[in-house]
């Protein structure tokens, strides 16, 4: 177990919803794309993962939602081992709102149809075959559409939407799941600054009101520090730093090989590319 230097945060395991012990992962048994990851994410946290392209961030999210299994080490998500093909993990899958980097929306379906997909675990096979949802599910979906700023767009086809609107649809679909965890992969990376902040506000508000654990991958360290209470920095598959903002100080929660200044410089240089 890692030593926690930031005293204000509760200690790990008792409250952590995601727990990774010495996790390594690889595709096609080649080199590890993630190496010996120690990670503990407390329930209700707003956790960010930052790193350069190819550092393994998306892989990390896929390990948490069980689309991939670690080659080595152990992951627990709400005390269960994530594995999408394991029936025992199914109820947890319903509670994880996963927003992949490319959003995974159904282009030719309407906004409302896309968002109602989040309610499918609560709908019988027969009713869902006829796309029949109860009035309360439809009302709830419309309420969430309003919450993410898509009121009046319910019947719009997704391919007609702007980049920012598509991201709101993906957020709404995840929220309709009534999730405990939201995993968002670079959801604002391709957006302009203003839209990116609007989307982050939507997520921050949902997280606060719905008591979610948010785990978000970002490309931009500044943005991550602005919205998250903890930021893990991944470099070439290793977690090199875990930091958080307390007041006006950046606190290091893991003794890394890099100083904070070095990390900050590394990222400010990179984001200027």
């Amino acid at each position: 177990m890692q030593e926690q230097k930031g005293s204000t945060f509760p200690s790990i395991s008792t409250l952590s919803i995601v727990q990774m012990n010495d996790v390594s992962a690889s595709y096609d048994s080649k080199d590890y794309v993630l190496k010996n990851i120690q990670m503990s994410i407390s329930r209700g946290a707003n956790y960010a993962i930052v790193g350069q392209s190819g550092s393994g961030k998306s892989t990390l999210l896929r390990l948490i939602n069980g689309m991939m299994s670690p080659t080595k080490g152990k992951i627990m998500v709400d005390y269960k081992t994530p594995n999408t093909s394991d029936k025992k993990f199914k109820s947890m899958m319903h509670k994880i709102g996963y927003i992949p980097q490319n959003l995974g929306l159904i282009k030719n379906s309407t906004v409302l149809e896309n968002v109602l997909i989040g309610a499918l675990p609560r709908v019988s096979g027969f009713n869902s075959f006829f796309k029949k949802f109860s009035n309360s599910e439809i009302d709830n979906a419309k309420k969430i559409l309003k919450q993410v700023g898509l009121q009046g767009k319910a019947e719009r086809k997704v391919y007609m939407l702007s980049g920012g609107e598509k991201r709101r649809v993906a957020i709404a679909r995840a929220l309709v799941q009534k999730p405990e965890i939201i995993l968002a992969d670079e959801i604002v990376s391709e957006l302009d600054h203003v839209t990116a902040r609007e989307i982050m506000e939507v997520l921050a508000e949902a997280q606060a009101t719905m008591k979610l654990t948010a785990i978000m991958v970002h490309h931009d360290l500044q943005l991550a520090l602005e919205y998250a209470d903890r930021v893990a920095v991944i470099k070439e598959g290793e977690k090199v730093l875990e930091i958080g903002v307390e007041g006006d100080r950046i606190v290091d929660f893991q003794s890394g090989n890099y100083t904070q200044r070095e990390i900050l410089e590394m990222f400010t240089n990179e984001s200027k590319e």
Partner: peptide, 18 residues
């Protein structure tokens, strides 16, 4: 979309339909 919706844990019939 198959992966994103599959990760929600929907049934195969639902995946086909939606």
């Amino acid at each position: 979309p198959m992966d994103a919706v599959g990760a929600i844990g929907v049934s195969k019939i639902q995946l086909i339909r939606f």
